[in-house]
Design a protein around this nucleic acid. Structure first.
Length: 816
DNA sequence: AGCACGCCGACT
DNA sequence: GTCGGCGTGCTC
């Protein structure tokens, strides 16, 4: 009998690859274990076992596996099921999910190592061969990249091949485990010196080694202070000694150094008991629990600052006591710092955090701990990709700020929505799911209205704090009356002045980073364009640069117009950077900071900014959407939105919903304590429905109206959307290809369900032309059948030779 | 995704 | 004439 395994490899191909195994391996291997397998001519990849079987493939002879990498499964059965769902639903390959889900450390790739084997007469070598052999005299082994660097050219394989044939060198594939455990050294005394007399004798004889003596004395003083083991770093610091001096004592047999493997991230023990819930929260808690008797998903719709977190805390607590894990999803790392601090108080060292700013080693540890169900991975807090962790036994999933679009991944595949994936994950674990938001997504609210999800509301802010007063400021009118100073209306400025005088803080929102989008010539109207993308370059003052926000191409600011040579250049529009600098002139006394993706690059930059603002070191904070993410500041009494219109005019069916959410969320940052907060929304169109609705906190009204529109124009939640993006660097080819594809789709799906092809507002990015085709799937159609048809059309598209090089991207439930 | 094989321009 | 560009096809 022969045995085979189907293996998922981290490459974007549809099919799994079949390898041969022997009987022992067949008994040992389980789905979810990793195997190293040969792939292609010389590479070795690690893959995940999906299926063990006895069917010999029909058309090829499977290769045997290289070796087995794990003793236990690294991926759970439920994860494999979830991957299958994601692959099917979001129309992507298992390999793409594998790549997104697993820390890179688990995905080993082999590396070719070159060694010297013999010598060749100079006459048989060309320059490159000579250089390579010369390099091998100094370094015993070389990696391919190193050879590329030494020879200064890309194509090195033919040279290596030639030398290999002549027997001058040997090559070997080496596989690396990339994970390096963190080792901490602990110092302890050898048994010999545990006796006092022996120790005294030793100390007496140390007249000429004062530092060693100091080390021993420090050791005892540390030991007296705490019962914990003593880290060598700690000891060296205390004794102000070097590790060489410590090593000397190890050599003398005084100290022993133990290296222990430790987690990189650890939290303190929980310190306090949970906060008492107020009546509304307690009622919500009861309501959620009774809904969970019959439903698996519940929407918690609570206005900003209503204390949703405390409700979560109580729910989490109840699940954790049963020994099951809890997943807490939030939209971005931005939120984590503040939230973790709050949750740490309650759950301390039961918490594991997982997000993209962690290093691979840190993520590997979290993965292992979650898989083991370790005590320090009971409550897992993370952004989008945390749904893909190897949960052991999940009892509850919380999706906080569920309306946030960052839960939907766009680039690269898998283009999954973490909220929707979490609901499927919940089903697999028989876990309950709470979706929380002050401004639920239309889809979610619809599901709640229809009874698919339960619905629980919190309509009061915690401690009966009033909702902020939202005032619309008509800047068209203000401009006419000459009451604008730059981008600020007199109303806004007056309020800022008052708030600053009270020693309170201000948040200003402008959803555009940079200084101003466009630098334009006043004479001829020319604006510098990106050479790779069809956009004007954005002016960034702090580096005196023009940058492209699509491909990061940048050039120095030109003093003269490139088209006509005029020196009269002017800026058009404005971003956070310009707001910041204008404010600095208007309020020279105040401390003003800016929060956007430019100022929060580093690992801790965001945290620093938040802390500074919390501590009152910043009076006015100017920022982009980052500011909306559920941050909790006590002393903010004024929020200003500089230009609401840019939000409303976005060419997207979600633009209105999003504007409402954004404005409501930014407003929610104001007046979280007793003093009522104020929000000023500057707009050219104060009569816009959305602005009217958000100003009186009329979520229901907004929902009903938007739902109506979605119905009329065939959008979610009624119709499902799949967006197809075509990319190619040849304009003519993509024109034809997109026409062809649209026509074929129309033929099978019906003309009314296919929209496009459409040229997006930015038609070319990184030298690739883009086209969009939108597929609308009516509630009567079977989603699965439509996807099948799309795949079929895609196949015949790929069969047309000239179209093969056109890249196709499928985005199911698209947001963009 | 990588990587090899295969066909056309600018250079020793 | 070759080196090297990247279009195309395959990997169990």
């Amino acid at each position: 009998m022969s045995y085979f395994i189907d293996v998922i490899l981290p490459i974007p191909v549809e099919k799994a690859f079949t390898y041969a195994i022997n009987k022992d391996e067949a008994i040992f291997l389980k789905p979810g274990m990793r195997v190293a397998v040969p792939f292609g001519k010389s590479k070795i990849y690690s893959g995940i076992v999906r299926h063990i079987h006895q069917e010999h493939p029909q058309i090829y002879e499977p290769k045997p596996i290289a070796y087995i990498l794990d003793e236990h499964r690294l991926v759970t059965t439920r994860q494999l099921q979830l991957w299958e769902w994601i692959a099917q639903y979001y129309m992507c390959t298992p390999g793409e999910i594998l790549r997104a889900a697993m820390p890179r450390t688990f995905l080993l790739e082999s590396q070719t190592i070159i060694r010297k084997k013999g010598t060749l007469p100079d006459s048989e070598m060309d320059d490159a061969s000579f250089m390579l052999m010369e390099a091998l005299e100094h370094q015993s082994q070389l990696k391919i990249e190193e050879v590329i660097a030494i020879l200064g050219k890309r194509k090195v394989l033919p040279i290596i091949d030639k030398l290999l044939h002549k027997g001058a060198l040997s090559v070997q594939e080496e596989v690396y485990e990339k994970y390096t455990p963190k080792l901490v050294s602990y110092v302890s005394l050898t048994t010999q010196y545990e006796e006092e007399s022996a120790l005294n004798q030793l100390l007496d004889g140390m007249g000429r080694a004062p530092k060693q003596r100091q080390l021993i004395l420090s050791f005892f003083s540390l030991k007296a202070k705490s019962k914990k083991e003593i880290k060598s770093t700690q000891l060296l610091k205390q004794a102000e000694a070097t590790s060489a001096q410590l090593q000397a004592l190890v050599k003398k047999g005084v100290f022993i150094i133990d290296k222990k493997q430790e987690d990189r991230i650890s939290f303190n023990e929980a310190s306090t008991i949970r906060k008492e819930l107020n009546a509304a929260q307690a009622a919500a808690m009861i309501a959620i629990k009774s809904i969970f008797e019959e439903k698996d998903v519940c929407l918690l719709h609570g206005v900003t600052a209503s204390g949703k977190t405390e409700v979560y805390v109580n729910l989490i607590e109840e699940i954790l006591t049963t020994g099951r894990q809890v997943l807490y999803l939030l939209p971005e790392i931005a939120l984590t710092t503040q939230l973790i601090r709050r949750l740490e108080v309650y759950f301390g060292n039961k918490i594991a955090v997982f997000h993209s700013k962690y290093s691979v080693n840190e993520r590997t540890e979290v993965w292992n701990n979650v898989l083991k169900g370790a005590s320090n991975a009971q409550l897992i807090i993370g952004a989008r990709s945390a749904v893909l962790l190897p949960f052991n036994d999940l009892g509850l999933i919380i999706v906080d700020e569920e309306h946030e679009s960052s839960f939907k991944q766009f680039e690269p595949a898998p283009r999954y929505h973490a909220r929707d994936t979490a609901i499927v994950l919940g089903q697999l674990h028989k876990a309950k799911v709470v979706l929380g938001s002050a401004t639920p997504a239309i889809e979610t609210y619809y599901n709640a209205q229809k009874g698919k999800y339960g619905l629980v509301s919190l309509n009061q802010r915690y401690g009966n704090v009033l909702m902020p007063e939202i005032q619309l400021v008509d800047i068209k009118e203000k401009r006419r009356k000459r009451m604008m100073t730059g981008y600020f209306s007199d109303t806004l400025l007056r309020n800022i002045t008052d708030v600053l005088a009270e020693g309170e803080q201000v948040i200003l929102f402008q959803n555009r980073r940079g200084y101003s989008p466009i630098l334009e010539c006043t004479t001829c109207g020319f604006a510098p364009q990106c050479p790779n993308c069809d956009v004007s370059l954005t002016y960034h003052k702090y580096r005196d640069q023009l940058r492209c926000h699509y491909c990061s191409h940048h050039i120095a600011v030109q003093q003269k117009c490139q088209a006509c040579g005029s020196t009269e250049l002017t800026t058009k529009g404005f971003g956070t950077e310009q707001v910041e600098s204008a404010l600095k002139t208007l309020y020279p006394e105040a401390t003003i900071s800016r929060m956007d993706s430019d100022t929060t690059r580093g690992k801790h930059a965001f945290e620093k900014l938040i802390t500074a603002f919390e501590d009152g070191d910043i009076d006015i904070l100017v920022g982009t959407q980052m500011l909306t993410k559920g941050l909790d500041f006590r002393n903010v009494t004024l929020v200003g939105i500089l230009q609401a219109d840019t939000l409303l005019n976005y060419p997207n069916f979600r633009a209105h919903e999003r504007s409402y959410q954004l404005i409501a969320q930014v407003s929610g940052r104001a007046g979280r304590t007793q003093k009522r907060g104020k929000v000023l929304v500057q707009t050219y169109n104060p009569y816009h429905q959305i602005l009217q609705q958000v100003s009186v906190n009329n979520f229901e009204g907004m929902y009903k109206e938007q739902l109506e529109e979605r119905h009329t124009y065939k959008y979610p939640p009624f119709h499902r959307l799949i967006k197809i993006t075509l990319k190619h660097r040849d304009y003519q080819k993509i024109e034809e290809a997109s026409q062809w594809l649209t026509q074929s789709l129309c033929n099978v799906l019906g003309t009314s369900n296919v929209l496009g092809p459409e040229t997006p507002p930015v038609a070319r990015i990184r030298n690739l032309y883009h086209k969009h085709i939108m597929i609308k799937i009516s509630p009567k159609q079977s989603l699965q059948a439509v996807k099948k048809e799309i795949l079929r059309v895609q196949l015949s598209f790929k069969a047309v030779a000239p179209y093969r090089s056109v890249r196709l991207i499928l985005d199911v439930d698209t947001y963009a």
